[in-house]
Design a protein around this nucleic acid. Structure first.
Lengths: 301, 301
DNA sequence: CGTGACGATGTAGCGTCGCTGCATGGATCC
DNA sequence: GGATCCATGCAGCGACGCTACATCGTCACG
């Protein structure tokens, strides 16, 4: 009953296949397949079943995978138990964030952690669809993710912890010379038939715009789909449309004015996602703590 | 961070040395030493320290060992999670008991478990000093142990679970033709200057006799020290002294009469001792359950 | 106070286990 | 129906952990 094999099984489950799991684990599909097969022989019950040309876990496999996170947690707890006796915690923490979240949080995080000797923070920015944030936790220690304010939350199983960081309002971004630019606030009905710049479908906060449209009575007229908020900003400034932009991140952006939305609750929630075993690591806990403190400062500002 | 190495570290701690641990784990001392050394290099803090020509765990070592039982528990839980999906639980359970406890409980336990297909119970009888029962849990799944009724209990750390089975009164065993044989009960003061047959020093229930002596006002006069209760029974029957014998186990023994003690609470507690990780195994839980039911029947009888 | 024994720890050698690389079979998409 | 993707079996190889043996330090005993 190898913990590595249990981890592998779990990854097969979360990543939805041998090949994908192998990529995450830096192994060949063959090795992954062999580990699962060995595990299966050991417990005597089928852990996986073919579905099409893919693979998924049987109920027994799910149960074993879930128990596997318990093993991983216990192992990391053991490591942490020794780290307590170390003079100073040390290690590298891999942090991933979506683009605008990285902009908002990571520079300050790096500054704070630089003051702490021994902890190295490795950053990665990721632009993934809403459903893929959870999968990132397999290769990252901390994943900074966002979702619509009133959305369904994360379908995090027992293996992933969700730590709320902050709520950021989404304002309507208009060019400086736009009729609405001088308003203290706008209502959905003010936005009938304006040209929208939206994010790609399936990406976070996409449905916020849909909610605004629903309130105004007509589907928003989307003229561009751009995920990068800086590109959005430039497009808005150049008069190619209006958009929804996060207040804290783009409050002082050049060429655009952010006007608060009234009558509809528009915002995004920024959370930290991390696997429960990773969360046991002393250095990860430390970084997460700083991240929360940092987010709290922004949230009350 | 190998779970086997953690187990090894823990065994070094409980057995108090590399050689003893190696014997329990069926390894050479060299292998044990190497495992610990590797673990130590991995965590970067000393886990053991020399004391004389022996060895003991440092605080960090203790912490890691304790965390190690968490790992072992999680691993066994994973195994059990799969066993749930197996049609019938199967496996072998190693049960150890002190002599008279084995006599009282194990035949009936075997009978009960024989009715269950797939579970094999391996018995071992052990006659060890009071302090050594805990060490037995390293090589046994379930250890049936006894201790004085009002004694200090077990110095079981977080790694060992103690499951109370029953309390058995200790009566005064006298030959059939003894003056006290017709009495409904005896008091400590009736026993001044009688020749006692006691168990060896340091062995369970040794101190019960001391308590009786303390109540009578004088130290008991011990003429023999015999651990085997059957030998004691034969000695008592032949008129070589009186002794304390457990009521349920020797109630109907030939040639002796058991007279209840009044004025002093004399008895022993019979417990099941088992390591927390072993306790996770489905088959072990099943056997333990039967053992408890069995003991409960005796206790109310 | 020297000698013998015991216990822990390095080193050499060997077996085994798990990985990579490649070939195969099955299912899907165009 | 051919091309593609995915999981899986097999041969080969490297690495890891074990045993056996030697060494060193510590404690008991004469």
């Amino acid at each position: 009953m190898d913990p590595r094999a249990l981890e592998t099984l779990r990854t097969v489950g979360t990543q939805g296949g041998v090949t994908a799991a192998a990529a995450v684990l830096h192994l060949t599909p063959s090795a992954v397949s062999q580990q699962v097969a060995l595990l299966q022989r050991e417990v005597g019950v089928p852990l996986t079943e073919r579905v099409g040309r893919g693979l998924r876990l049987t109920p027994a496999g799910e149960a074993l995978a879930e128990a596997g996170v318990g093993v991983a947690v216990a192992l990391e707890r053991a490591r942490a138990a020794c780290d307590e006796f170390l003079v100073r915690p040390q290690g590298v923490v891999r942090v991933s964030a979506f683009q605008s979240g990285a902009l908002l949080l990571l520079p300050a995080l790096l500054t704070r952690m630089a003051a702490v000797e021994g902890i190295t923070v490795e950053l990665t920015d990721q632009d993934v669809a809403q459903d893929d944030f959870l999968g990132l936790t397999d290769r990252m220690d901390v994943v900074v993710a966002h979702r619509p304010d009133d959305g369904a939350g994360w379908a995090a199983g027992g293996a992933v912890r969700v730590v709320p960081l902050l709520r950021e309002p989404l304002d309507v971004a208009v060019p400086l010379d736009h009729p609405l630019a001088q308003r203290a606030e706008v209502r959905p009905e003010d936005l009938l038939d304006v040209p929208w710049i939206a994010v790609h479908e399936g990406f976070p906060v996409a449905e916020v715009l849909a909610a605004v449209g629903a309130r105004s009575g007509a589907a928003p007229r989307i003229v561009h789909r751009v995920n990068d908020f800086h590109v959005v900003q430039a497009l808005v400034a150049a008069g190619h449309g209006v958009s929804l932009l996060p207040r804290y991140t783009f409050g002082g952006a050049r060429g655009v004015r952010l006007v608060p939305l009234a009558g509809v609750r528009a915002g995004r929630r920024i959370d930290a996602l991390l696997r429960r075993d990773r969360a046991e690591r002393l250095v990860v806990r430390r970084v997460l703590e700083e991240l929360r403190a940092l987010a709290a400062e922004i949230d009350i500002a």
